Amino acid sequence: MSSTDIRATAKAVLSATFLTPHRVREMGLTRHRLAAQVAVGALWRVRKGRYVTPDTHPSLVEAARYGGRLDCVSLLAALGVFVRERPGSHFQFTPGTTRLPVRPPEVIAHWRFVEAGDDALTADLLGALVQACRCQSPRDAIATLDSAWHHGLIDEADVAEILRRLPRRFRPRRALLDARSESGAETLMRLILVELGCRVDVQVELPGVGRVDLIVDGWLIVECDSRAFHEGWTAQVRDRRRDLAAAALGYATIRPLAEDVYYRCEEIVSTMKEILSWGPGRLQDSTDPVPLGRAR
């Protein structure tokens, strides 16, 4: 999704609320008419005195049925913010709440107070991001914050507030955040390269090439490819022409797969160490992009 689409989705999801008995009365629905609306599926009863419309996001409905609000990585994924696939559903529950339905093992409960109304179907965004930083690895948490910032859901002041709410040990991560990162894979690849001691420039515009994801140590272009933007022959033609244009400027190009960055990190680190040890001279002898994982 584009940033515009993600912001629109976030506005709709974060503003979703129950229809309470008071709201139902304001709509002019008597008890009999309310029952009729539920019977024909025009409204769904999720709990006693709590109703939603059929177009409500399924994850919100699930959270509501258990007496909670969508939270943490589950909420962020529903908004289109990057989170790596995580099992289970993360719901927020208000401390002291009683008579809740029995939750299945795959529901992860976060018992905390939130800055959301009693009829809200989601936790507040900043609270969800704080919780997601606690629930994810440091690298994944940085990628999530980068994503939310890049898409315009938070700004620099929000980042400062999120870090203020977290334990002090999280604060050094501020230096690793970069709102220019356009994907989770790009952030995670950048963090790998930084840990290897590289100088990494993000989203660089090159004449005749266009914008590239990362330039490492001034000579190596790293493009983090995913199926969404690089599938099909047309995309391959475009990418190969860009790589040739970059080679003409003196750059070598590699294209690690996003799924390998996510799930084969050790192999990516090992291969990057080998490629970087060559230096610019050896790779620039070829105008072809180096296939990551087979660089020998």
Rank of each mutant, 00 (worst) to 15 (best):
S3R: 00
S3F: 02
T4G: 05
A10Q: 02
K11M: 02
S15A: 14
A16D: 11
T17H: 13
F18K: 08
R25Q: 11
G28V: 07
T30V: 10
T30D: 12
A35H: 11
A35V: 10
V38H: 09
A39H: 14
A42G: 15
L43V: 12
R45L: 08
R47A: 15
R50I: 06
V52T: 14
P54H: 10
D55K: 14
D55N: 15
D55E: 15
L60P: 08
G67A: 06
R69Q: 11
D71C: 05
V73G: 01
A78N: 01
L79K: 01
L79D: 02
V83M: 05
R84S: 07
E85V: 10
G88T: 13
G88V: 12
S89V: 15
S89R: 14
S89P: 00
F91H: 13
T94C: 04
P95C: 06
T97W: 03
T98P: 06
V102G: 10
R103H: 13
R103S: 12
E106H: 15
E106C: 06
E106T: 12
V107I: 15
I108E: 12
I108K: 13
I108D: 07
F113A: 08
E115D: 11
G117K: 08
G117C: 05
D118W: 03
A123E: 06
G127P: 03
C135N: 06
C135G: 01
Q136W: 01
R139L: 05
A141I: 04
I142A: 01
D146R: 03
D146F: 04
S147I: 06
H151L: 05
G152F: 10
G152A: 07
L153R: 05
A157V: 14
D158M: 07
A160V: 13
A160D: 13
P167K: 11
P167N: 09
R171Y: 03
R171C: 02
P172F: 02
R173I: 01
A175H: 00
A179D: 01
A179H: 07
R180N: 02
S181R: 01
S183Q: 04
E186H: 07
T187I: 05
L188N: 04
M189H: 03
L191S: 06
G197A: 09
V200E: 03
V202N: 01
V202H: 01
E205G: 00
E205Q: 10
E205D: 11
L206G: 09
G210W: 09
G210C: 03
V222Q: 03
E223N: 04
A228E: 12
F229T: 06
E231P: 00
E231Q: 13
V237W: 09
D239R: 09
R241F: 03
D243I: 06
A246I: 02
A247R: 12
A247T: 03
A247G: 13
L249N: 08
G250Q: 11
G250I: 06
R255G: 01
R255F: 02
A258H: 02
A258P: 00
E259R: 11
Y262M: 07
S270G: 00
T271K: 04
E274T: 10
L276P: 00
S277A: 14
W278C: 10
G281F: 11
L283M: 15
Q284H: 14
Q284I: 08
S286H: 13
S286Q: 14
D288H: 13
V290R: 15
P291D: 12
L292V: 15
R294S: 14
